[in-house]
Amino acid sequence: MKDKPMTRPVLRIENLCKSFGATPVVRDVSFDVHPSEVIVIIGSSGTGKSTLLQCLNLLHRPTSGRIFLEDQEITASGMNEDTVRRQMGMVFQEFNLFNHLTVLGNVTVGMTKVLGMPAEDAEKKAMNELERVGMADHRHKYPAQLSGGQKQRVGIARALGMSPKVMLFDEPTSALDPELTGEVLTVMQKLAAEGMTMIIVSHEMGFAREAADRVIFMENGRIEEQGPPDRMFTHPESERTRKFLSIITTGNTDPPIGKAT
């Protein structure tokens, strides 16, 4: 791990399990996320990365295990899921921008309807976030009028607008044409540099090398191996990690694992 001061973790995951019916998808996953840490999760398709991410902000209810956001156990019964979610930003592979709202509306709607901010303040803050992702000039456009990369940058601004403690990214660039991934990765790199705590499911190895503090390799719903990117990418301990990395780094631009499910 890169040297980080041993602070209180922002997010602590303890023995998290999630099954759909009788099928276990996430099995006994535990890890801590420290302030400003950037974690990249890799692993082949169907290993439960999306499910894990969606458990973290309770879009899926974990079957067992505990999650703490700062000092609070968010998996405790009686916890208001909505209050939890507004403290974590989520960016989706398919963008999921609100189609009936303009770029500006997409960013303000959460602030006004969820946080109850006055429209004027929300707009000011939204413009700030849109500047951060370089989309301020497009504020009056509708999602259908944007390119994929632009949509994803708005998706990031929308999440930032809620002033989240952690940002979750689920394969933010996998739905993009290769020439459009750069603009999104640049924005994410900038956020990382600014000290945002981020958990990212991604197969962009270059990005992971540059920005990640820790890489987690998942297989079959479990954490198979984790460590700083330099070590993980050069001397993986596990045979499976090695195999996985060799598949996605052999220049195969269309790997069987790149697709999210």
Binding site: L59, R85, F98, V109, G110, V114
Partner: peptide
């Protein structure tokens, strides 16, 4: 369906998601 997921993702309740999104 992604619209509702995204709405829940920014902390809207199910009702708010239906009403606003």
């Amino acid at each position: 369906k992604g619209q509702m997921t995204a709405a829940r993702g920014i902390g809207m309740s199910r009702f708010q998601g239906i009403r606003h999104i």
